[in-house]
Structures are given as C-alpha cells and as structure tokens.
C-alpha cells in the first residue's frame, strides 16, 4: 500500500490502492512512522497509483500536514488521478499542500 524512498532530504512516499475509512487507520499509522525519519526537510506524497480516495483521505492528509508543520516540514502532492484531484481541489488542500508534477526517478 505504501512505499518510500529518501532522496537527499526529500522523502517520497507512494500511496497505492484505495484510501477510505476502512484503510485510513493503517495508512495513517504507516505515514506517521515514515515521516518520523530524521533529516527529512520535505515530503512528497506520490498518488499516481492511488485509485480511490474519498473525503476520509482529506482528513488523513490534513492530519499529517499538521504534524509535519510543527516540525517545519512542507508536504507536496504529486500526480493524483482525475477523480482524486477533484476531491483534493474541492477541499482546498492544495493551498497548504501544493500539487507538483514528479516524474524523474519513478519508484
């Protein structure tokens, strides 16, 4: 469901599959474990292989934003699919977690 790699001081986290109420707990826990990595200055959530997400996912992302903000670590969202992009846009979350294109060094 989740893979990651640290490139320099940027932690890339790929979230795959479906993010809803049923999967949220496990994904939240794993994201928190991964983002505890020391030396990380920036996190990128790569969503190209996330096939479904409803507003439960917004809550999960906002929760991670609040935790990392306290440490001064910004989060970016990369490559969401159309359906997920619409939910993210509607929520206004890109105002605090900007959307980026990330193509180099695919996982």
């Amino acid at each position: 469901m989740i893979d990651h790699k640290l490139v320099g001081s940027t932690l890339y986290i790929g979230i795959r599959g479906e993010l809803d109420e049923n999967s949220a707990k496990g994904i939240r826990q794993r994201l928190d474990e991964l983002t505890e990595a020391p030396g990380m200055e920036k996190a990128v959530f790569e969503l190209s292989e996330l096939t479904f997400m409803d507003s439960t996912g917004i809550g999960v992302l906002l929760g991670r934003y609040n935790k990392l903000k306290a440490r001064g670590v910004p989060i970016f969202i990369a490559n969401p699919r159309g359906n997920i992009d619409r939910v993210l846009t509607l929520s206004g979350i890109y105002g605090i977690m900007p959307k980026i294109e990330y193509s180099h060094g695919k996982r």
Partner: peptide, 15 residues
C-alpha cells in the same frame, strides 16, 4: 479529534 475533514456532504453535493 479524529482528523475528519467535514467534507463528506460537500463532496456528495458537488459530484
């Protein structure tokens, strides 16, 4: 407290 977005009905209404 449970990290809920409060966007559920807004999503339904929009989509």
């Amino acid at each position: 407290d449970e990290e809920r977005s409060g966007m559920g009905f807004t999503v339904m209404e929009t989509f």
